[in-house]
Amino acid sequence: MAEGQAVGRVELKFDPKILEGLGKPLKTVTFKVYRFDPSRGEGVTYSTYQVPIFRGTTVLDALLYIKERMDPSLTIRYSCRMAVCGSCGMVVNGKEMLACKTQVEGLKSDTLVVRPMHNLPVTRDLVTDFDAFFKKHRAVLPYIIREDVDVNIDREYQQRPEEVVDYLMFANCIKCGLCYSACPTSATDEMFLGPQAMSQAFRYVADSRDDGHRQRMDVLDSPHGIWNCHFAGSCSDVCPKGVDPAFAIQQLKGLLIFRSGYLKKKRPAPNVQQKRELVPER
């Protein structure tokens, strides 16, 4: 069995006994993991580990294996382990992916270079700071806005199934930040809203219950808003939930330039109480 080692940090011997009860590994994969600890002031290093891979082992499983048995100082953020929480986004062999959703076998490589997401400041090792990301998310007012009724009342809004389809895909966003990391514009323009925030803006603009498109469009139609998108499409390429932010951004551009009249005329769907007033019950 290959020997585990951490280059430039601590050296730990890999004990084959720890594999007892796990079955026979398919192969051993070399993990080169990005290491950065601001308190040490050493800059960025890469630690190398030999990890046994079993059928179904995910990148997160492998990283936790390293943390539990080889190098406890490795820092990772994760939670649900089922591609729902969006906590374990990282860059593996140059492509953004969720560590919990990505099986090592599927990457078809004997060496995996794992690093934290791009375009976000690194807190430590594979953990990034999401403050700027969520600040931009909040800037597009990602919630239903109604001026005509109190949104806190307990009556539902009327919405047809085909109106749900208009935004359903974008409601699947788990805010993992992979699209933001893959975006080439976010790499150079730190004030750029980013694909996640803009796709969420479209999610609410396209929602028939919403009446906040004017406020939202003011944010989007700014020097660092939707017009800086180069339509590289990498955001859509890496999304683990099948959301298409590039499509949303192009739709927003179209709405602003060619269909501004539609936005002016758009009226939000009534809630149950309003509908009874409009169409009295028999």
């Binding site: 150079t188 730190e190 020097p223 017009w227 800086n228």
Partner: peptide
């Protein structure tokens, strides 16, 4: 557009 994308700041822009 190119220059304001490469560097940001109210005064600079």
């Amino acid at each position: 557009k190119v220059l304001t994308e490469l560097h940001q700041g109210r005064t600079y822009e």
